[in-house]
């Protein structure tokens, strides 16, 4: 193996030659995507894409920027949920009162991403389209059963978030598709959700992140959803743990079993940020902490 990146990477510039397209309508953007297909990349905030290009992990020949397209920057309530447009900045999501009140886990996740400066640039859609296993918005979107809307010249497709991630940096999107929005259904009434993240320092990608959603009915778990990130090639729900806990009381014994299931279901690796062993260990405690915190929220309301 040779470290050619010491010569190829130049973060002073974007050491890649590309055409920059800045269409003003979605239709025009879709047409460009059809025309350039695999050679083109959509750019929203660019906080992942430009970094990847500087590091030469991606060398697209065409960039189709969404910046000038009007009408895809919104957070609106509709059809039993909230719709978030592709140009909507993370910072707007974090400041939105519906998100803060009804989607606690998403709110907590977005706030944990990078810094205010980066959140002013970056988008939620970019965060999931980048498909990092550690994407912080992914676990909450997974527990809320969000739906991703993608368009191409041929029309619109609705993709369940569970089917969206295919591997590190890979989604199920076709080369000519653009995600226009994410629809997040309201969580069940009287439920609460929580996001937690363990990282090296406070401004960092996760070693492990987690989102859970709980609904209790007279001390028995009625609904339980759990998703973790940075512990497998994609962010993942843990259906086995969910099924186990449903209709059971939340006691120490059950909690131990849920922790055990989670640590068995994840497939962490050792990388720069942490080790396989550590990720497995702290996943367990994160389950416990996230549950505790969610129960507290339920008791409060």
């Amino acid at each position: 193996m040779r470290a050619d990146y010491v010569n190829l990477v130049n973060t002073h510039t974007v050491p890649v030659r590309f055409m920059y397209h800045s269409p003003e309508t979605l239709e025009e953007a879709l047409r460009l995507m059809r025309e350039y297909g695999g050679e083109a990349r959509v750019m929203a905030g660019g906080t992942d894409l430009i970094v990847d290009m500087k590091l030469r992990r991606k060398e697209p020949k065409h960039i189709v920027s969404l910046n000038k397209i009007r009408g895809i920057e919104y957070i609106v309530e509709e059809d039993g949920g909230v719709r978030i447009g592709a140009n909507t900045k993370l910072r707007s999501i974090e400041k939105n009162s519906i998100v803060r009140e009804r989607f606690e886990a998403l709110y907590e996740a977005v706030r944990s991403i990078a810094s205010v400066q980066v959140r002013n640039m970056g988008t939620l859609v970019g965060n999931i389209c980048n498909a990092s296993p550690a994407a912080d918005s992914a676990p909450p979107l997974l527990v809320y059963d969000a739906v991703v809307k993608a368009r191409s010249i041929d029309g619109e497709r609705k993709i369940k978030i569970r089917d969206f991630f295919k591997g590190p940096g890979k989604t199920c999107l076709k080369d000519d598709e653009i995600v226009t929005e994410v629809f997040i259904p309201y969580p069940p009434g009287d439920s609460a959700s929580t996001f937690f993240k363990i990282s090296r320092v406070s401004m960092d990608l996760a070693k492990v992140n987690i989102a859970i959603l709980v609904k209790l009915s007279s001390n028995v778990v009625e609904d339980f959803r759990i998703a973790l990130g940075a512990v497998a090639p994609t962010p993942l729900r843990i259906p086995k743990a969910e099924e186990y806990l449903r209709h059971k009381p939340l006691n120490e014994e059950n909690l131990n079993i849920v922790e055990k299931i989670v640590s068995e279901e994840i497939k962490p690796i050792t990388d720069v940020r942490s080790t396989e062993w550590y990720r497995r260990e702290v996943s367990k405690i994160l389950v416990r902490d996230a549950l505790n915190s969610t129960i507290k929220k339920l008791v409060r309301t």
């Binding site: 470290a3 090296r200 320092v201 406070s202 960092d204």
Partner: peptide, 18 residues
């Protein structure tokens, strides 16, 4: 394997407290 620092010089993987 690459004979280089694990973080490859990328500050994003050489963390310091803020």
């Amino acid at each position: 394997e690459i004979g280089d620092i694990e973080c490859r010089g990328f500050i994003i993987d050489y963390k310091m407290p803020t």
